[in-house]
Amino acid sequence: MIEAAPLLSVSGLGHDYDGIIACRHIAFDLWPGEVLGVVGESGSGKTTLLNALSARLIPTTGTVRYRTREQGMVEVYRLSEAERRMLMRTDWGFVHQNPREGLRMSVSAGANVGERLMAVGARHYGEIRAEAVRWLEQVEMDTGRIDDSPRTFSGGMLQRLQIARNLVTKPRLVFMDEPTGGLDVSVQARLLDLLRGLVGDLGLSAIIVTHDLAVARMLSHRLLVMWRGEVVETGLTDQVLDDPQHPYSQLLVSSVLTP
């Protein structure tokens, strides 16, 4: 499935907050259908990186280029604000660790899933609703809850709803920030299963930030290991996790995998 040209191409990316470096010298390509895991402990700069990649934070240096459906390769931070926001709500998705940040908690589950469709011009209530039902099924939610408020949902359901809300416009690239963080272990396992299935079935590309190496192993094809704002190791997931080269990666892997 992997095509010849990258979907996302990052070079020299860096960001600092008032002189304090959060991340720097980041460069990589993401290929269509590829899932890239970004691992590292908290404070390693991975969330800043994710925000800078996903047009949520203008980076101090470097470029992020994305292959759009219509215009081919574009530099994300050279796009007009309108184009960038359009990209963010159609061809991209963003799954927050806390689903409440990604959902509109005051409207029903159906409206949450339907919003992106309405934002791009869908004007048939019945069709929007049918599509919402379809996506609730896809994320294995009870479609009978379509008119319920998200406030009545459990953490795992909220995360499923957030995922459905993102996928409804059939994005090609989804950013995820600790998508299973804060969930019970059993709920986590089911959600991971679902995510892996969706990513495979839909041929999505994804960048997943996590501190949980089990999540990284289960979902991602390739890994970036971040330490003190820089990528210290990169490679195929199994290779990095089973045979880490950088001392920090070794520490990270041993500290987690040692029973």
């Binding site: 604000e81 309108a82 926001r85 709500r89 509109r104 409207v107 029903s108 159906g110 409206a111 339907g114 919003e115 992106r116 309405m118 934002a119 791009v120 869908a122 004007r123 209530y125 929007i128 609703r129 379509i146 008119d147």
Partner: peptide
């Protein structure tokens, strides 16, 4: 003001959708 400038009006229909659903 940004939403008007960029013609981002999806949320208006969310409100109408919600009315019909409810």
């Amino acid at each position: 003001r940004t939403m008007h400038a960029l013609e981002e009006y999806g949320v208006m229909h969310v409100r109408l959708y919600e009315d019909i659903a409810r």
